[in-house]
Design a protein around this nucleic acid. Structure first.
Lengths: 199, 199
DNA sequence: AGCCGAATCGGAGAGAGTCTCCATATAGCC
DNA sequence: GGCTATATGGAGACTCTCTCCGATTCGGCT
Protein backbone atom coordinates (compact mmCIF):
# COMPACT_ATOMS: atom_id res chain seq x y z
CA UNK A 1 0.00 0.00 0.00
CA UNK A 2 1.42 3.29 -1.09
CA UNK A 3 -0.33 4.91 1.88
CA UNK A 4 2.39 3.50 4.09
CA UNK A 5 5.17 5.42 2.40
CA UNK A 6 3.22 8.61 3.09
CA UNK A 7 2.46 7.46 6.60
CA UNK A 8 6.09 6.80 7.37
CA UNK A 9 7.13 10.20 6.12
CA UNK A 10 4.66 12.09 8.29
CA UNK A 11 4.08 11.84 12.01
CA UNK A 12 0.56 10.75 12.92
CA UNK A 13 -0.54 14.15 14.27
CA UNK A 14 0.81 15.81 11.16
CA UNK A 15 -1.10 13.37 8.97
CA UNK A 16 -4.29 14.15 10.82
CA UNK A 17 -3.73 17.89 10.53
CA UNK A 18 -3.03 17.66 6.84
CA UNK A 19 -6.18 15.65 6.16
CA UNK A 20 -8.27 17.94 8.32
CA UNK A 21 -6.95 21.05 6.60
CA UNK A 22 -7.81 19.56 3.22
CA UNK A 23 -11.33 18.75 4.30
CA UNK A 24 -11.87 22.22 5.75
CA UNK A 25 -10.39 23.88 2.66
CA UNK A 26 -12.61 21.80 0.38
CA UNK A 27 -15.68 23.03 2.19
CA UNK A 28 -14.51 26.63 2.38
CA UNK A 29 -13.59 26.78 -1.31
CA UNK A 30 -16.80 25.02 -2.19
CA UNK A 31 -19.16 27.14 -0.12
CA UNK A 32 -17.44 30.38 -1.00
CA UNK A 33 -14.68 30.60 -3.60
CA UNK A 34 -10.95 30.09 -3.91
CA UNK A 35 -10.61 33.65 -2.62
CA UNK A 36 -11.15 32.67 1.01
CA UNK A 37 -8.01 33.65 2.88
CA UNK A 38 -5.39 31.17 4.00
CA UNK A 39 -5.59 32.57 7.51
CA UNK A 40 -9.30 31.91 7.71
CA UNK A 41 -8.77 28.33 6.56
CA UNK A 42 -6.18 27.91 9.30
CA UNK A 43 -8.64 29.29 11.84
CA UNK A 44 -11.45 27.06 10.59
CA UNK A 45 -9.15 24.07 10.82
CA UNK A 46 -8.09 25.12 14.31
CA UNK A 47 -4.39 25.22 13.46
CA UNK A 48 -1.84 28.01 13.40
CA UNK A 49 -0.83 29.74 10.19
CA UNK A 50 2.59 28.13 10.43
CA UNK A 51 1.10 24.64 10.38
CA UNK A 52 -1.03 25.42 7.37
CA UNK A 53 1.90 26.86 5.44
CA UNK A 54 4.22 23.98 6.26
CA UNK A 55 1.78 21.52 4.78
CA UNK A 56 0.86 23.75 1.85
CA UNK A 57 3.36 26.53 1.14
CA UNK A 58 0.77 28.60 -0.71
CA UNK A 59 -2.80 28.53 -1.91
CA UNK A 60 -1.88 26.93 -5.22
CA UNK A 61 -0.35 23.99 -3.38
CA UNK A 62 -3.52 23.59 -1.35
CA UNK A 63 -5.63 23.77 -4.49
CA UNK A 64 -3.36 21.31 -6.25
CA UNK A 65 -3.76 18.79 -3.44
CA UNK A 66 -7.54 19.12 -3.69
CA UNK A 67 -7.56 18.97 -7.47
CA UNK A 68 -5.71 15.68 -7.44
CA UNK A 69 -8.85 14.16 -5.97
CA UNK A 70 -11.08 15.84 -8.56
CA UNK A 71 -8.66 14.78 -11.25
CA UNK A 72 -9.39 11.16 -10.48
CA UNK A 73 -13.06 11.82 -11.15
CA UNK A 74 -12.16 13.48 -14.43
CA UNK A 75 -10.02 10.51 -15.48
CA UNK A 76 -12.90 8.22 -14.66
CA UNK A 77 -15.21 10.31 -16.80
CA UNK A 78 -12.69 10.19 -19.63
CA UNK A 79 -12.60 6.40 -19.58
CA UNK A 80 -16.38 6.37 -19.52
CA UNK A 81 -16.59 8.67 -22.52
CA UNK A 82 -13.95 6.86 -24.55
CA UNK A 83 -15.55 3.50 -23.83
CA UNK A 84 -19.15 4.47 -24.36
CA UNK A 85 -18.94 6.86 -27.27
CA UNK A 86 -18.00 5.62 -30.70
CA UNK A 87 -18.45 9.02 -32.35
CA UNK A 88 -15.16 10.84 -31.79
CA UNK A 89 -16.83 14.20 -32.33
CA UNK A 90 -19.44 13.54 -29.70
CA UNK A 91 -16.69 12.26 -27.41
CA UNK A 92 -14.86 15.57 -27.77
CA UNK A 93 -18.03 17.45 -27.02
CA UNK A 94 -18.62 15.42 -23.87
CA UNK A 95 -15.00 15.84 -22.84
CA UNK A 96 -15.19 19.62 -23.19
CA UNK A 97 -18.25 19.54 -20.96
CA UNK A 98 -16.53 17.39 -18.34
CA UNK A 99 -13.50 19.65 -18.55
CA UNK A 100 -15.63 22.71 -17.87
CA UNK A 101 -17.25 21.12 -14.86
CA UNK A 102 -13.85 20.13 -13.48
CA UNK A 103 -12.54 23.68 -13.90
CA UNK A 104 -15.51 24.95 -11.94
CA UNK A 105 -15.09 22.60 -8.99
CA UNK A 106 -14.63 25.84 -7.05
CA UNK A 107 -15.66 29.36 -7.95
CA UNK A 108 -12.59 31.31 -9.05
CA UNK A 109 -10.54 28.23 -9.92
CA UNK A 110 -9.95 29.21 -13.57
CA UNK A 111 -7.68 32.08 -12.60
CA UNK A 112 -5.03 29.99 -10.79
CA UNK A 113 -5.30 27.34 -13.51
CA UNK A 114 -4.53 29.90 -16.19
CA UNK A 115 -1.65 31.30 -14.16
CA UNK A 116 -0.27 27.77 -13.74
CA UNK A 117 -0.15 27.38 -17.53
CA UNK A 118 2.07 30.45 -17.80
CA UNK A 119 4.43 30.06 -14.88
CA UNK A 120 5.47 27.04 -12.86
CA UNK A 121 3.15 26.30 -9.94
CA UNK A 122 1.97 23.24 -8.04
CA UNK A 123 -1.00 23.20 -10.41
CA UNK A 124 1.14 23.08 -13.54
CA UNK A 125 1.56 19.27 -13.78
CA UNK A 126 -2.17 18.70 -13.49
CA UNK A 127 -2.83 21.31 -16.20
CA UNK A 128 -0.33 19.67 -18.52
CA UNK A 129 -1.88 16.26 -17.94
CA UNK A 130 -5.34 17.55 -18.76
CA UNK A 131 -4.05 19.32 -21.86
CA UNK A 132 -2.37 16.12 -23.05
CA UNK A 133 -5.59 14.18 -22.64
CA UNK A 134 -7.50 16.88 -24.50
CA UNK A 135 -4.95 16.70 -27.27
CA UNK A 136 -5.52 12.96 -27.63
CA UNK A 137 -9.29 13.24 -27.74
CA UNK A 138 -9.11 16.13 -30.18
CA UNK A 139 -6.75 14.24 -32.45
CA UNK A 140 -9.11 11.27 -32.57
CA UNK A 141 -11.89 13.59 -33.70
CA UNK A 142 -9.60 15.26 -36.25
CA UNK A 143 -8.52 11.92 -37.65
CA UNK A 144 -12.13 11.08 -38.37
CA UNK A 145 -12.70 14.44 -40.01
CA UNK A 146 -15.01 15.57 -37.23
CA UNK A 147 -12.88 18.41 -35.87
CA UNK A 148 -11.00 21.10 -37.74
CA UNK A 149 -7.23 20.83 -37.85
CA UNK A 150 -6.50 24.48 -37.11
CA UNK A 151 -6.43 24.01 -33.35
CA UNK A 152 -4.48 22.07 -30.74
CA UNK A 153 -5.48 20.42 -27.49
CA UNK A 154 -4.08 23.42 -25.70
CA UNK A 155 -6.41 25.70 -27.63
CA UNK A 156 -9.45 23.62 -26.71
CA UNK A 157 -8.30 23.55 -23.10
CA UNK A 158 -7.98 27.33 -23.06
CA UNK A 159 -11.34 27.66 -24.75
CA UNK A 160 -12.99 25.57 -22.06
CA UNK A 161 -11.07 27.43 -19.37
CA UNK A 162 -12.10 30.79 -20.78
CA UNK A 163 -15.75 29.73 -20.78
CA UNK A 164 -15.47 28.51 -17.21
CA UNK A 165 -13.94 31.82 -16.22
CA UNK A 166 -16.56 33.91 -17.98
CA UNK A 167 -19.58 32.01 -16.73
CA UNK A 168 -18.43 31.29 -13.19
CA UNK A 169 -19.49 28.41 -10.96
CA UNK A 170 -22.81 29.88 -9.92
CA UNK A 171 -26.21 28.97 -11.31
CA UNK A 172 -26.50 32.55 -12.55
CA UNK A 173 -23.97 31.91 -15.30
CA UNK A 174 -25.49 28.68 -16.51
CA UNK A 175 -27.20 30.16 -19.54
CA UNK A 176 -24.06 31.96 -20.61
CA UNK A 177 -22.08 28.78 -20.08
CA UNK A 178 -24.37 26.70 -22.27
CA UNK A 179 -24.41 29.27 -25.05
CA UNK A 180 -20.64 29.66 -24.98
CA UNK A 181 -20.12 25.91 -25.11
CA UNK A 182 -22.37 25.78 -28.13
CA UNK A 183 -20.39 28.60 -29.74
CA UNK A 184 -17.15 26.78 -28.97
CA UNK A 185 -18.43 23.85 -30.97
CA UNK A 186 -20.37 25.54 -33.74
CA UNK A 187 -19.22 29.16 -33.85
CA UNK A 188 -21.46 32.19 -34.11
CA UNK A 189 -21.60 32.01 -37.87
CA UNK A 190 -24.66 30.59 -39.58
CA UNK A 191 -23.48 27.66 -41.67
CA UNK A 192 -23.84 27.97 -45.43
CA UNK A 193 -27.22 26.26 -45.88
CA UNK A 194 -25.76 22.79 -45.42
CA UNK A 195 -27.62 20.21 -47.52
CA UNK A 196 -27.82 17.57 -44.84
CA UNK A 197 -28.23 20.12 -42.10
CA UNK A 198 -26.80 19.78 -38.62
CA UNK A 199 -28.11 16.73 -36.75
CA UNK B 1 -16.41 74.78 -24.37
CA UNK B 2 -17.35 72.00 -22.06
CA UNK B 3 -13.84 72.23 -20.61
CA UNK B 4 -14.93 75.31 -18.69
CA UNK B 5 -17.57 73.45 -16.71
CA UNK B 6 -14.89 71.00 -15.65
CA UNK B 7 -12.48 73.83 -14.99
CA UNK B 8 -14.93 75.62 -12.75
CA UNK B 9 -15.56 72.48 -10.72
CA UNK B 10 -11.90 71.76 -10.05
CA UNK B 11 -9.14 74.02 -8.85
CA UNK B 12 -6.29 74.39 -11.28
CA UNK B 13 -3.78 72.40 -9.20
CA UNK B 14 -6.35 69.66 -8.79
CA UNK B 15 -6.96 69.60 -12.51
CA UNK B 16 -3.26 69.26 -13.15
CA UNK B 17 -2.89 66.49 -10.60
CA UNK B 18 -5.81 64.57 -12.03
CA UNK B 19 -4.45 64.76 -15.55
CA UNK B 20 -0.98 63.84 -14.39
CA UNK B 21 -2.24 60.84 -12.42
CA UNK B 22 -4.14 59.62 -15.46
CA UNK B 23 -1.07 59.90 -17.66
CA UNK B 24 1.13 58.11 -15.13
CA UNK B 25 -1.47 55.39 -14.62
CA UNK B 26 -1.82 54.89 -18.35
CA UNK B 27 1.90 54.27 -18.65
CA UNK B 28 2.08 52.06 -15.57
CA UNK B 29 -0.88 49.90 -16.62
CA UNK B 30 0.47 49.78 -20.15
CA UNK B 31 4.04 48.85 -19.29
CA UNK B 32 3.08 46.40 -16.60
CA UNK B 33 -0.53 45.41 -15.97
CA UNK B 34 -3.59 46.61 -14.12
CA UNK B 35 -2.11 44.90 -11.08
CA UNK B 36 0.30 47.72 -10.33
CA UNK B 37 -0.60 49.01 -6.91
CA UNK B 38 -2.44 52.25 -6.32
CA UNK B 39 0.28 53.35 -3.92
CA UNK B 40 2.96 52.94 -6.54
CA UNK B 41 0.92 54.98 -8.99
CA UNK B 42 0.64 57.71 -6.37
CA UNK B 43 4.41 57.60 -5.85
CA UNK B 44 5.10 57.68 -9.58
CA UNK B 45 2.79 60.65 -9.93
CA UNK B 46 4.47 62.35 -6.99
CA UNK B 47 1.27 62.78 -5.02
CA UNK B 48 0.06 61.36 -1.72
CA UNK B 49 -2.24 58.40 -1.50
CA UNK B 50 -5.01 60.68 -0.26
CA UNK B 51 -4.83 62.78 -3.40
CA UNK B 52 -4.98 59.76 -5.65
CA UNK B 53 -7.98 58.32 -3.81
CA UNK B 54 -9.88 61.60 -3.77
CA UNK B 55 -9.66 61.81 -7.54
CA UNK B 56 -10.29 58.09 -8.07
CA UNK B 57 -11.86 56.31 -5.11
CA UNK B 58 -10.60 52.92 -6.27
CA UNK B 59 -8.75 51.24 -9.10
CA UNK B 60 -11.90 50.60 -11.08
CA UNK B 61 -12.64 54.31 -11.13
CA UNK B 62 -9.13 55.00 -12.40
CA UNK B 63 -9.51 52.33 -15.07
CA UNK B 64 -12.92 53.67 -16.02
CA UNK B 65 -11.50 57.16 -16.54
CA UNK B 66 -8.80 55.71 -18.79
CA UNK B 67 -11.20 53.48 -20.68
CA UNK B 68 -13.39 56.42 -21.57
CA UNK B 69 -10.54 57.58 -23.79
CA UNK B 70 -10.10 54.14 -25.32
CA UNK B 71 -13.86 53.89 -25.75
CA UNK B 72 -13.77 56.84 -28.12
CA UNK B 73 -11.34 54.93 -30.29
CA UNK B 74 -13.62 51.92 -30.23
CA UNK B 75 -16.63 54.01 -31.24
CA UNK B 76 -14.61 55.44 -34.09
CA UNK B 77 -13.71 51.96 -35.22
CA UNK B 78 -17.36 50.95 -35.04
CA UNK B 79 -18.40 53.80 -37.36
CA UNK B 80 -15.59 52.84 -39.70
CA UNK B 81 -16.71 49.21 -39.79
CA UNK B 82 -20.40 49.98 -40.23
CA UNK B 83 -19.67 52.47 -42.99
CA UNK B 84 -17.09 50.46 -44.88
CA UNK B 85 -18.42 46.94 -44.63
CA UNK B 86 -21.60 45.94 -46.41
CA UNK B 87 -21.38 42.29 -45.35
CA UNK B 88 -22.96 42.19 -41.89
CA UNK B 89 -21.19 38.95 -41.06
CA UNK B 90 -17.81 40.39 -41.87
CA UNK B 91 -18.74 43.49 -39.88
CA UNK B 92 -19.44 41.33 -36.84
CA UNK B 93 -16.13 39.58 -37.29
CA UNK B 94 -14.27 42.88 -37.46
CA UNK B 95 -16.18 44.18 -34.45
CA UNK B 96 -15.27 41.14 -32.36
CA UNK B 97 -11.66 41.78 -33.27
CA UNK B 98 -11.85 45.46 -32.32
CA UNK B 99 -13.61 44.47 -29.10
CA UNK B 100 -10.82 42.08 -28.20
CA UNK B 101 -8.16 44.70 -28.79
CA UNK B 102 -10.05 47.19 -26.65
CA UNK B 103 -10.34 44.68 -23.82
CA UNK B 104 -6.60 44.18 -23.94
CA UNK B 105 -5.68 47.84 -23.76
CA UNK B 106 -3.96 46.78 -20.54
CA UNK B 107 -2.85 43.37 -19.39
CA UNK B 108 -5.30 42.09 -16.78
CA UNK B 109 -8.15 44.36 -17.84
CA UNK B 110 -10.60 41.52 -18.57
CA UNK B 111 -10.92 40.65 -14.89
CA UNK B 112 -12.29 44.02 -13.72
CA UNK B 113 -14.47 44.18 -16.83
CA UNK B 114 -16.05 40.86 -16.00
CA UNK B 115 -16.53 41.88 -12.38
CA UNK B 116 -18.20 45.08 -13.54
CA UNK B 117 -20.76 43.05 -15.49
CA UNK B 118 -21.76 41.24 -12.30
CA UNK B 119 -21.78 43.97 -9.70
CA UNK B 120 -22.04 47.73 -10.04
CA UNK B 121 -18.72 49.47 -10.57
CA UNK B 122 -17.45 52.58 -12.34
CA UNK B 123 -16.77 50.32 -15.31
CA UNK B 124 -20.33 49.05 -15.54
CA UNK B 125 -21.79 51.78 -17.77
CA UNK B 126 -19.01 51.36 -20.31
CA UNK B 127 -19.55 47.60 -20.35
CA UNK B 128 -23.26 48.01 -20.92
CA UNK B 129 -22.67 50.46 -23.74
CA UNK B 130 -20.29 48.07 -25.47
CA UNK B 131 -22.71 45.18 -25.02
CA UNK B 132 -25.53 47.23 -26.52
CA UNK B 133 -23.41 48.03 -29.55
CA UNK B 134 -22.46 44.38 -29.92
CA UNK B 135 -26.12 43.47 -29.74
CA UNK B 136 -26.89 45.84 -32.60
CA UNK B 137 -24.13 44.55 -34.84
CA UNK B 138 -25.03 40.95 -34.05
CA UNK B 139 -28.68 41.55 -34.84
CA UNK B 140 -27.78 43.02 -38.22
CA UNK B 141 -25.85 39.85 -39.02
CA UNK B 142 -28.67 37.65 -37.76
CA UNK B 143 -31.23 39.52 -39.85
CA UNK B 144 -29.23 38.71 -42.94
CA UNK B 145 -28.96 35.08 -41.94
CA UNK B 146 -25.23 35.37 -41.37
CA UNK B 147 -25.20 34.70 -37.64
CA UNK B 148 -27.05 32.07 -35.65
CA UNK B 149 -29.95 33.24 -33.53
CA UNK B 150 -29.07 31.20 -30.45
CA UNK B 151 -26.92 33.92 -28.92
CA UNK B 152 -27.22 37.49 -27.71
CA UNK B 153 -24.88 40.47 -27.84
CA UNK B 154 -24.01 39.75 -24.25
CA UNK B 155 -22.88 36.25 -25.17
CA UNK B 156 -20.63 37.54 -27.93
CA UNK B 157 -19.24 40.16 -25.55
CA UNK B 158 -18.46 37.51 -22.97
CA UNK B 159 -16.95 35.31 -25.63
CA UNK B 160 -14.61 38.07 -26.72
CA UNK B 161 -13.85 38.90 -23.09
CA UNK B 162 -13.09 35.28 -22.28
CA UNK B 163 -10.69 35.09 -25.21
CA UNK B 164 -8.98 38.29 -24.13
CA UNK B 165 -8.62 36.90 -20.63
CA UNK B 166 -7.25 33.57 -21.78
CA UNK B 167 -4.74 34.93 -24.26
CA UNK B 168 -3.56 37.98 -22.36
CA UNK B 169 -2.17 41.19 -23.78
CA UNK B 170 1.32 39.90 -24.43
CA UNK B 171 2.71 38.79 -27.76
CA UNK B 172 3.10 35.30 -26.28
CA UNK B 173 -0.63 34.74 -26.40
CA UNK B 174 -1.13 35.95 -29.93
CA UNK B 175 -1.38 32.51 -31.51
CA UNK B 176 -3.87 31.35 -28.91
CA UNK B 177 -5.83 34.56 -29.43
CA UNK B 178 -6.08 34.09 -33.18
CA UNK B 179 -7.10 30.46 -32.91
CA UNK B 180 -9.72 31.20 -30.29
CA UNK B 181 -11.17 34.02 -32.36
CA UNK B 182 -11.44 31.64 -35.26
CA UNK B 183 -13.16 29.10 -33.02
CA UNK B 184 -15.55 31.76 -31.77
CA UNK B 185 -16.62 32.34 -35.35
CA UNK B 186 -16.46 28.83 -36.80
CA UNK B 187 -16.44 26.43 -33.87
CA UNK B 188 -14.12 23.46 -33.47
CA UNK B 189 -16.41 21.19 -35.45
CA UNK B 190 -15.58 20.36 -39.03
CA UNK B 191 -18.54 21.52 -41.12
CA UNK B 192 -20.52 18.87 -42.96
CA UNK B 193 -18.72 18.93 -46.32
CA UNK B 194 -20.20 22.27 -47.37
CA UNK B 195 -20.76 22.40 -51.14
CA UNK B 196 -19.63 25.98 -51.61
CA UNK B 197 -16.96 25.68 -48.94
CA UNK B 198 -16.01 28.51 -46.62
CA UNK B 199 -14.81 31.67 -48.35
C1' DA C 1 -0.57 93.60 -2.95
C1' DG C 2 -2.29 91.06 0.72
C1' DC C 3 -5.95 88.52 3.19
C1' DC C 4 -8.88 84.60 4.12
C1' DG C 5 -12.05 80.78 3.57
C1' DA C 6 -12.67 76.92 0.94
C1' DA C 7 -10.57 73.50 -1.73
C1' DT C 8 -6.83 70.45 -1.97
C1' DC C 9 -2.86 67.96 -0.39
C1' DG C 10 0.25 64.45 1.95
C1' DG C 11 1.17 60.80 4.55
C1' DA C 12 0.42 58.33 8.93
C1' DG C 13 -2.08 54.49 10.09
C1' DA C 14 -6.08 51.04 10.29
C1' DG C 15 -7.39 46.69 8.50
C1' DA C 16 -6.79 42.60 5.75
C1' DG C 17 -3.94 39.34 3.43
C1' DT C 18 0.38 36.34 2.58
C1' DC C 19 4.02 34.13 4.38
C1' DT C 20 8.39 33.43 7.78
C1' DC C 21 10.64 32.42 11.95
C1' DC C 22 11.60 30.14 16.05
C1' DA C 23 10.65 29.07 20.95
C1' DT C 24 7.73 25.56 22.62
C1' DA C 25 5.35 21.14 22.64
C1' DT C 26 4.77 16.39 21.34
C1' DA C 27 5.17 11.75 19.09
C1' DG C 28 7.18 7.63 19.23
C1' DC C 29 11.64 4.91 19.36
C1' DC C 30 14.81 3.12 22.92
C1' DG D 1 10.35 7.34 31.43
C1' DG D 2 13.81 9.79 28.70
C1' DC D 3 15.38 11.81 24.45
C1' DT D 4 15.46 13.67 19.83
C1' DA D 5 13.57 14.52 15.51
C1' DT D 6 9.37 16.34 14.07
C1' DA D 7 5.57 19.37 14.34
C1' DT D 8 3.08 23.30 16.28
C1' DG D 9 1.24 28.14 16.80
C1' DG D 10 1.21 32.75 16.70
C1' DA D 11 3.85 37.02 16.71
C1' DG D 12 5.35 39.92 13.32
C1' DA D 13 7.42 41.55 8.69
C1' DC D 14 5.80 43.00 4.54
C1' DT D 15 2.34 44.48 0.96
C1' DC D 16 -1.85 46.39 -0.57
C1' DT D 17 -6.21 49.19 -0.21
C1' DC D 18 -8.34 52.91 1.58
C1' DT D 19 -9.50 56.70 5.43
C1' DC D 20 -8.75 60.63 8.13
C1' DC D 21 -7.28 65.06 9.28
C1' DG D 22 -3.81 68.77 10.19
C1' DA D 23 -1.12 71.45 6.97
C1' DT D 24 -0.92 73.80 2.69
C1' DT D 25 -2.30 76.29 -1.39
C1' DC D 26 -5.47 78.56 -4.54
C1' DG D 27 -7.80 82.42 -6.10
C1' DG D 28 -11.68 85.80 -5.37
C1' DC D 29 -12.07 90.06 -2.80
C1' DT D 30 -10.69 94.21 -0.78
Amino acid sequence: MSQLSVASALRRDAQHNRAHILEVARQAFGNDSVDVSMDSIAKLAGVGAGTLYRHFPNKDALLAALLVLHYEGLEHRRVEIEAGESDAGRALELWVEALGDWMLAYEGLPEPLRAACRVESPLTPTCHAVIATTERILKAAQDEGLARRTMTGRDIFFGALAIAWASGATAAGEDTRNVLRDILKNGWMEPKTAPGGRP
